[in-house]
C-alpha cells in the first residue's frame, strides 16, 4: 500500500487513473447493457442493408430515385416497409416489365437473399410493416375457415370474386386471382395494400382475422369441384355460354340427324 501511495503524486497518476476509470465504466456498461450477438447482427444488418442498397441502385433506382424518394413514374419507397418489398419483389411484380396499367405477377427476378437485402435496405429508410415471421403465419392453427369466408365476402369478394378468382377494376386494372398465392404474400398484401388494393390495418382486420381469411382462401383453393367442371368459378357467364354451345349445340345436332334419317 505504501509503494502505491508513493506514486500518488506522480505526474502520470492522474491520466492513468482516468484511463482505468473509463475502462472500468465502459466494461461495466457493456457487460450490463449489450450482448455480443446483438453487435454481430447489427454488423450483419448493415452489411445486408449495404448489399440491398447496391441492388436497389442497379435495379430499382432508375424509377424509384437514387434514394428511393420516388419520381413521377414511381412512388417513394420511404416508409413502405419490408413487407411491401417482399410482396412486390417476391411475387415478381417488381421490377416491372412494362409501365402498363398494372404490375402483374411473373417469375421473380431476385432470389430470396437478394429480396431480403432489398427489404432490409428499404426498411432502413423509415419504419413500415415488417415481413411476418413463420410463427405469425400459422393459419392452420390460428385461423377459422367459416369466419374467414364471411370476412372474405365482406372485404375481398367485391374485387377478387366470390371464390378468389379475381375480377376487373376500372381502366384495365384488375384484382388478381388469389389461387396459388403464398400465405405470406396474401398477408403482406393485406398489410401494405399494393397497387389498387386498400390497406387492411390490424385495427380493421386483426392478425387472427387475416389468418382466417388466408385459411378460407386455402380451403377454397383445395376444394374439389363438387358439382363437376366449374368453368372458372366465374358465375353465370360461362354457364350461359355452355348452355348455348354444348346444350343447344348437341340438341341441334340430334335434331338434324333425326330429320335427315327419315327421308
Amino acid at each position: 500500500m505504501k509503494r502505491l501511495s508513493r506514486y500518488r503524486r506522480h505526474k502520470a497518476a492522474g491520466p492513468l487513473l482516468l484511463i482505468f476509470a473509463l475502462f472500468a465504466i465502459g466494461t461495466t456498461f457493456s457487460v450490463a447493457s449489450a450482448t455480443v450477438t446483438e453487435t454481430q447482427s447489427v454488423f450483419d444488418r448493415s452489411a445486408s442493408i449495404e448489399e440491398g442498397k447496391q441492388i436497389f441502385l442497379k435495379g430499382c433506382s432508375s424509377c424509384h430515385g437514387l434514394n428511393a424518394e420516388g419520381a413521377s413514374i414511381a412512388p417513394s419507397l420511404i416508409g413502405v416497409g419490408a413487407a411491401s418489398v417482399d410482396f412486390q419483389v417476391g411475387t415478381g411484380r417488381m421490377p416491372m416489365a412494362d409501365m402498363s396499367t398494372q404490375a402483374m405477377r411473373k417469375p421473380r427476378v431476385y432470389n430470396e437473399e437478394e429480396t431480403a437485402a432489398l427489404a432490409a435496405y428499404v426498411a432502413s429508410l423509415a419504419p413500415g410493416p415488417a415481413i411476418p415471421g413463420e410463427s405469425e403465419l400459422n393459419y392452420e392453427r390460428d385461423g377459422n375457415t367459416a369466419e374467414g369466408g364471411e370476412l372474405f365476402r365482406n372485404n375481398c369478394a367485391m374485387c377478387h370474386n366470390f371464390a378468389g378468382q379475381g375480377g376487373a377494376l376500372s381502366q384495365g386494372k384488375y384484382a388478381p386471382t388469389l389461387m396459388g398465392v403464398e400465405p405470406k404474400h396474401i398477408y403482406e398484401a393485406m398489410v401494405t395494400g399494393p397497387q389498387s388494393m386498400p390497406v387492411f390495418s390490424d385495427k380493421t382486420i386483426t392478425p387472427e382475422e387475416k389468418l382466417s381469411i388466408i385459411k378460407w382462401i386455402k380451403s377454397a383453393e383445395a376444394e374439389p369441384n363438387l358439382g363437376g367442371a366449374t368453368m372458372g368459378r366465374i358465375g353465370p357467364v360461362s354457364e350461359g355460354l355452355l348452355a348455348w354451345v354444348l346444350g343447344l349445340g348437341l340438341l341441334i345436332g340430334i335434331a338434324v340427324w333425326l330429320t335427315t334419317r327419315a327421308r
Binding site: G149, E150, R153, N154, A157, M158, C159, H160, N161, F162, A163, Q165, G166, G167, A168, A175, A220, E223, N225, L226, G227, G228, A229, T230, M231, R233, I234, G235, P236, V237, E239, L242, L246
Partner: peptide, 23 residues
Amino acid sequence: VASINPIWLYGPYTPGQISAGSQ
C-alpha cells in the same frame, strides 16, 4: 359433368356483401 350455380361458394346473402363478376 358441369357445375352450375355453386351456391356454397357464393355464401349466404347479406346486403353488405357483393362479389366481383355478379351476373
